[in-house]
Amino acid sequence: MDIPDIHIRSVGSALPGPPIDNSALARRFGMDTLWEQWVDAFIGTRTRHLAIDLESGELAVSLAELATEAGSRALAAAGLAPGEIDVLVMGTATPDQLMPATVNLVADRLGINDVPTYQLQSGCCGAVQALDVARRMLQSAGHTNALVLGGDVCAQFFDLGADLMSLRPEELVNAVLFGDGAGAAVLTTEPAPGRPAIRRVLNRLTGLGQQPGQVLRWYGPAQGKPPEGAGVAEDYKAIEERVPVMAAEILAELLESLDWKPDDIGYLLPPQLSGRMTGKIVKGLDLPGAREITCVADTANTGNALPFLQLERLVGALEPGERAIGIAVESSKWIKSGFALEGV
């Protein structure tokens, strides 16, 4: 049986509320202008969109709502009705609750039923993992269209009453590093002009024996009182050291597997940890001929939404014959992921 090429038919995204700049965060947390300057200089993130109301601390929009909006936009852009979707896959590190799975809440809101659904619990690589699962399902199960979702609402782990001056660096960075959002893509076996073909997807755990670079804590009553501190912790120094190296390894493996040369790459979708880190990674990848597609300085790190925000900017620009590489690195247990696209 011939294995069909899988194409990206459309992409959609959703961000909650207006952008919140560093000055607004500084005012909310009672920080001075030096803190704002520190964010600009060392993080490089200008704005972010948050699913919580900064004044009340209440969750204003859920991940299911954001993913439904993104999925609806992707369906509309693809010209498809919900009943034409054959499989639904979602990647997230921050589902709305443990059960029911957020992917099934989204399916219900979109009017999708009687199809296989999958929810992958993963950090920044979850979106790529979801693309991989959907691609394999389309290639092997006789399906035609898959809706792939990715998103995170990290703000639900914010402690708006925290004294930021007392936080450890691995906790302080989370107050400015993350934003919220969701994205969606329709994958199809039906080729057409303007629908990039997915040439390769890489997804590999590489963290054997390594300490986690990121921890997201979730507690139930039987576990007792959670320890003091933020629900999210980053070993930012380890991330800063390892992610650029892993990104270069991902690029090299994708190029070698396809027999592509660095000069063949027209677009680069680099990892989107922060504005400063992205610049460092892109410089190290050394693809001077590739146009960089990045948005993290304006959206902050939206986790599993970010690859879709990048793809949304790419799909309409990729011309026939042009090639693009996307890279995502997950520090929670050190996962390499990436994908290669070609315009057709």
Score class of each variant (00 low, 15 high):
I8S: 02
A67V: 02
V215R: 13
L314H: 09
K225H: 07
P82S: 01
C125M: 08
P116H: 04
L216G: 03
E319C: 11
R291N: 12
Q37D: 13
D163P: 08
P244G: 00
W35C: 04
W334K: 01
D2W: 04
A175G: 15
K225W: 01
M1K: 08
R195D: 06
D53Y: 07
M31I: 04
P271Q: 06
L285D: 04
P221N: 11
Q310L: 13
A230S: 14
E319S: 14
R242D: 10
E330L: 04
K225Q: 12
G179P: 09
K261M: 08
R168C: 10
A141K: 13
A247S: 15
R136L: 14
Q97N: 05
A14G: 02
S166K: 13
L269A: 12
A14C: 07
V232K: 00
R168G: 14
G209C: 05
T94R: 02
N145S: 00
V153N: 03
L251M: 11
W218D: 09
E330M: 08
Y219D: 12
L187V: 13
E170Y: 02
V315K: 04
L138P: 01
Q139W: 01
V61I: 15
L311T: 00
R217C: 06
T188E: 03
R9V: 07
L138Q: 00
W38L: 10
Q310N: 10
V153P: 07
D32A: 03
G194L: 06
R291Y: 00
Q129Y: 14
A238F: 08
L187P: 05
V329P: 05
C295Q: 14
L172I: 01
D114N: 12
T302M: 12
N104T: 15
S337C: 03
M31P: 00
K237I: 10
T206I: 15
G213V: 07
R135N: 13
N22R: 12
F178E: 05
S274E: 04
L63M: 08
T188Y: 02
A26C: 07
W218P: 00
R276A: 12
K237W: 06
C295D: 12
L98E: 10
V186G: 12
D114T: 07
G338L: 00
E69C: 00
V106H: 03
L216V: 15
R195N: 11
T206P: 09
P262F: 00
T94G: 11
I281V: 15
R48W: 09
D96E: 10
L208Y: 09
V61R: 12
D264N: 09
E55R: 13
E55V: 00
A107Y: 00
T294S: 15
R136F: 09
D286E: 14
A101S: 14
L15C: 07
S56F: 11
W260D: 13
V61D: 06
D21Q: 12
P244T: 02
L25W: 10
V215A: 08
P271E: 07
R73Q: 12
R28W: 01
E234V: 06
K237E: 14
G266C: 05
R313D: 11
E58G: 14
F308I: 07
S337V: 05
L15Q: 08
R48G: 04
L59T: 04
M90N: 10
I265K: 03
